[in-house]
Design a protein around this nucleic acid. Structure first.
Length: 816
RNA sequence: GCGGAUGUGGUGAAAUGGCAGACACGCUAGACUUAGGAUCUAGUGCCGUAAGGUGUGGAGGUUCAAGUCCUCUCAUCCGCACCA
């Protein structure tokens, strides 16, 4: 029996396709499992990261099917997005053609890897049917006030010619093409995710235990809730007059109200409205205006290099001391956090300190260490004792925070305030290959929603993509339409949606029964049955963006009445990266391994086995060609040694007592592997140790020759391994067991009972020797035997303590 | 700076506080072969001929017993970051 991965894998892939083996059924009384992997972008070919991702989810799905669960294990394609347009620019292909031919190819790859995805539920987010329901949800959200349009400074990627969400700007550069991002003032649509800031934060508690701690922390930091004091600085009379009485002051936010008496200046962001007013009305000299313009035009990265600023020659009054405080513009003040203005306390804040040093501003200390002295050359930012703070002198700075906020509130000059780092989600993109935003601009009615019965607003196919500007805007006819409200000539919105919108609800769409796909996005009954996702598997790179947006959409859909739960993903497993030669596989580094080539050479089972065996799923996986060979050899042996099995339709009944030592040992190893397997799928996810257990069992089986033990061993081992290497296990199982063993297996406790056990003997905690005793031997006798066998180390010593750890070891504590 | 994680053989990695290195890769030797990048057998943490010693980034501590628990510390990786 020669192992041929090609023949055998093709056979089973056809069998599964013909039998619809992986379709969930619609009996909602059955226990269910929803196993989901993050769906791929149809880039053209799967990479090893995908293979790892789907191998893990497939193992879960197959395991739970064996255990009798109704399993939903769907796949789709996150198919809108810029690479399709980039390919269009590069090779003149149409984004749609490019996308769907990639999808076809990748579906073939899924099949050749033996992934047990539901075929009927496959979808692509660029399907018009998907767009239709998504646009419907957008309209719902607009009606709820969760979507709005406003002008603002946006992150603009000059290379992609589009707006980016804050989340898509990494270190000042575009997340896709790495171009330096600039600020641009334009209209944009926003989701009001900040309205859910508190809930997105507090519900993280519900995910504890199910989600990796790291991801929870990342989301927590991203939401960035902080508490503090908000109050108003009022201009003095001279300043007010200089500003033509247009402004009487500005709000600031601080998390350190305890340092209020140390304020020595205040700073505005270069984009602050007061600064803009002064520039527009020429209230500043040319030199100052030039400096401010320079600050505005500097990218956020460069701004971090050195602090700079200019004085505005304005003054405000300190709210408590009534002293005059000068106003500066500073490049480190961010317009989009808080109010775009800060009080500055150089003595107790590193940034304020650097700035004060550079421009020779006063440094007024008001907090001192409990012991020791203040240093002159850096800010003291720790907890200490207040001084120079009038009635608050002597307080612990931590306690002073609340007391000072209370004082401001009592005097009616400030309020306690919660601030979020999270900002509203800008969702419009000036691109072609995305879901059109279903709005119309009408001269009479303004911004009007499209009627739901007109959905989907589909993309035109006859477009020219050059990379310059928005192809939809340039299309000769597409944007011209009638106003849905008054019927007059109007113009369609030509912006399309951020592709993260599609991935924010695809897991709900999968719950819908395909027979109703045309009529509804999903039904509440189906959603209630399948959700939440039991295991969600994907890359850590989505820890913030996708997972936060998906949580947001879930809460919005709940408030729209479509669903009735709070969180979409019960358990999240973030897989580690696939490395080669210590670095992440990437085309630019030239260290990629092509999954198709591995399948061609060794077969899908080998690829799957190696991936699950080489490292636990959450850790990085180092690709190793010779270890892949090793996986292949194991499968080959596993297949060839199956000739030791005697054909049977039920697990052989074995009289354990009558077996030889080797036979007993083999059975023990087999059942140990079974126990391990159940642990792995249940909670630990350490497939590597489960596979090691199976290998040990194989080694033990091979050391004996009882055909019943062989048969029983394979009955169990092929069942355990089917989720990992489904093709070869199905082949063996159908050949010898009529596929009857691919179900949950019972653990026989009798094989773990030993009549003789080996105990380690240690002296002073150091392993010295071993003894063999009857398993029911008395402690007394064990100790006697142990002392005899360790006699040579005990000579001339006194035993001060004797410890027997049942079934493990004996420890003797001695001294001279 | 803040937060999270990880440090164990030549390599990937195992170890409910109980004989560290399971399992695998690699390597060494042998067997079978015309041949071996196939297969099988044996060995393989380090030092040492051996007895033995030593060993989980480092330093302390708790314990009969520590890779595992506690304190400090070093290194690497990841995320966020002028967030007031």
């Amino acid at each position: 029996m020669e192992y041929s991965s090609k023949k055998l894998e093709k056979k089973w892939q056809e069998y599964w396709a013909q039998n619809g083996s992986f379709e969930p059924n619609e009996d909602f009384t059955k226990a269910k499992k929803y196993i989901l992997s993050m769906f791929p972008f149809p880039s053209g070919r799967l990479h090893m990261g995908h293979v790892r991702n789907y191998t893990i989810s497939d193992a879960f799905a197959r395991y739970y099917r064996q255990q009798g669960f109704n399993v939903l294990h769907p796949i789709g394609f996150d198919s809108f997005g810029m690479p399709a347009e980039n390919a269009a620019i590069k090779n003149g292909s149409h984004p749609k053609t490019w996308t769907y031919s990639n999808i076809d190819y990748m579906k073939g790859e899924f099949k050749s890897l033996g992934f047990s995805f539901s075929k009927e539920r496959e979808l692509a987010t660029s399907d018009e049917l998907y767009t239709k329901f998504e646009q419907g949800f957008i309209i719902d959200m607009y009606e709820k006030g969760l979507l709005y349009r406003k002008k603002g400074f946006l992150n603009w990627c000059p290379s992609c010619q589009t707006v980016l969400a804050n989340e898509q700007v990494l270190e000042g550069s575009c997340w896709r093409c790495d171009t330096n991002v600039v600020k641009k003032d334009m209209n944009q649509y926003y989701f009001k995710i900040t309205q859910y800031g508190d809930e997105l934060l507090s519900d993280l508690a519900k995910l504890e235990g199910g989600w990796p701690k790291q991801v929870l922390t990342m989301q927590e930091n991203w939401i960035g809730k902080s508490y503090g004091l908000e109050f108003k600085f009022s201009f003095d009379i001279a300043s007010r007059e200089r500003l033509n009485n247009k402004f009487d002051g500005f709000e600031v936010f601080t998390t350190r109200p305890d340092t209020i008496y140390g304020v020595s200046y205040a700073a505005l962001a270069p984009e602050h409205e007061i600064v803009n007013y002064m520039i527009e009305n020429l209230l500043l000299d040319d030199d100052t205006i030039i400096k401010i313009q320079e600050m505005k035009n500097t990218s956020s990265i460069d701004r971090q290099k050195e602090k700079s600023g200019v004085s505005l020659n304005l003054n405000v009054t300190h709210p408590l001391t009534k002293k005059s405080v000068p106003i500066w513009v500073a490049n480190f003040v961010l317009m989009d956090y808080g109010s775009g203005a800060v009080m500055a306390v150089p003595a107790h804040d590193d940034r304020d300190f650097d700035f004060a040093k550079k421009y020779n501003l006063p440094i007024n200390a008001v907090i001192k260490p409990f012991n020791g002295d203040l240093s002159d050359d850096k800010a003291f930012t720790e907890v200490g004792e207040l001084f120079n703070s009038e009635s608050f002198n002597g307080l612990n700075s931590k306690d002073a925070q609340g007391k000072i906020i209370d004082y401001f509130e009592a005097q009616n000059i400030g309020t306690k305030k919660t601030n979020f780092r999270l900002k509203d989600w800008g969702v419009s993109r000036q691109r072609y290959w995305g879901a059109p935003i279903p709005f119309v601009h009408c001269d009479s009615c303004g911004l009007v929603m499209e009627k739901k019965e007109n959905l989907p607003i589909a993309l035109p196919e006859d477009i020219v993509i050059t990379g310059e500007g928005n192809p939809l805007d340039k299309h000769p006819t597409w944007k011209h339409c009638k106003c849905p409200s008054c019927g007059k000539d109007a113009v369609r919105e030509t912006d399309t949606m951020d592709t993260f919108v599609e991935s924010s609800w695809y897991f709900l769409r999968f719950c819908a029964s395909p027979k109703n796909w045309q009529d509804e996005a999903f039904s509440k009954e189906q959603i209630e049955y399948w959700m939440s996702v039991d295991h969600y598997i994907g890359g850590i790179e989505h820890a913030i963006l996708h997972l936060l947006y998906a949580r947001f959409f879930t809460k919005v859909f709940r408030d729209l009445g479509y669903i009735s739960f709070d969180e979409p993903f019960n358990k999240l497993l973030t897989q580690g990266m696939v490395l080669k030669d210590g670095a992440k596989m990437s085309k630019s580094k030239g260290n990629t391994v092509d999954p198709d080539a591995i399948i061609e050479k060794y077969g899908a089972d080998t690829a799957r086995l190696f991936i699950l065996f080489a490292a636990p799923p959450t850790q990085e996986l180092e690709w190793n060609d010779s270890a892949v060979e090793g996986a292949y050899r194991f499968i080959k042996r596993f297949y060839e040694r199956s000739s030791n099995i005697v054909k049977t339709d039920s697990i052989p009944q074995i009289d354990h007592g009558s077996l030889s030592k080797d036979e007993k040992f083999a059975r023990k190893k087999v059942y140990e592997a079974l126990v391990r397997a159940n642990d792995v799928y249940g909670e630990k996810y350490t497939f590597n140790t489960m596979i090691a257990g199976v290998m040990e069992a194989m080694n033990a089986l091979n050391a004996q020759s009882n055909s019943d033990v062989w048969s029983e061993g394979y009955w169990i081992l092929t069942s355990i391994m089917e989720p990992v290497i489904p093709h070869v296990c199905s082949e063996i199982s159908s050949e010898y067991f009529s596929l009857k063993n691919l179900t949950s297996q019972r653990v026989l406790e009798e094989v773990f009972v030993e009549n003789v056990i080996i105990l380690g003997v240690s002296i002073n905690g150091k392993a010295r020797t071993e003894i063999e005793v009857a398993s029911d031997e008395s402690q007394e006798n064990i100790m006697k035997i142990a002392k005899e066998s360790a006699a040579k180390w005990l000579e001339g010593k006194t035993i001060v303590k004797e410890i027997v750890v049942p079934k493990k070891l004996v420890n003797l504590v001695i001294k001279d």
